[in-house]
């Protein structure tokens, strides 16, 4: 089974996000959205970057580094990003499982959201559709390595 927040998971999400009906739902998404997920169960920090143009996914990036991956954690927010979200793996997993609401995460000191919140609120219906698609991917949350996965890029040094 696919391991949550790994390259294989991102690849599966990307495949599903190319469906025209999904693109229609998220056509307001434009620009770069960055997620940093810290302290994954295999001891890595991970980051995923998603770039949209009118709802079409035009670029994705994935990287991981041994936690604490200081370079990732210290990287300043850039105006090139529409949004950057940072949180521990356990919180992102709980969100994906529907155990906590996005609102609960937003109000937690452990979930850091950067970007223009007024703009992000306007994108809420698109985010909901995106979250729904991602959480529909069947995954396992507890894992100790990604060794069985193909196309796994090398880990960055911390």
């Amino acid at each position: 089974m696919i391991k949550y927040y790994t390259k294989a998971w991102q690849d599966e999400c990307v495949r599903r996000m190319q469906a025209p009906e999904f693109e229609a739902k998220v056509k307001k998404l434009n620009g770069l959205f960055v997620f940093r997920v810290l302290d994954c169960p295999d001891g890595y920090d991970r980051t995923m970057q998603w770039t949209f143009s009118s709802g079409k996914l035009v670029d994705v990036k994935y990287a991981k580094g041994v936690a604490p991956w200081q370079q990732l954690r210290d990287e300043p927010f850039s105006t090139a990003m529409i949004m950057r979200a940072t949180c521990p793996y356990q919180m992102m997993a709980a969100l994906n499982k529907g155990e906590i609401s996005p609102l609960k995460a937003l109000t937690s000191p452990h979930y850091k959201l950067e970007g223009n919140k007024a703009l992000l609120m306007q994108l809420m219906p698109a985010f909901n559709a995106w979250n729904q698609l991602c959480s529909a991917v069947e995954v396992t949350y507890e894992y100790s390595s990604e060794e069985d996965e193909q196309n796994e890029p090398p880990a960055a040094s911390s």
């Binding site: 609401s101 609102l103 609960k104 937003l106 109000t107 937690s108 000191p109 919140k117």
Partner: peptide, 15 residues
């Protein structure tokens, strides 16, 4: 109260 949307805009986050 911690789940209320207004907490997202409070200057001090809380648990």
């Amino acid at each position: 109260a911690l789940e209320d949307v207004s907490m997202a805009f409070n200057p001090r986050k809380a648990e």
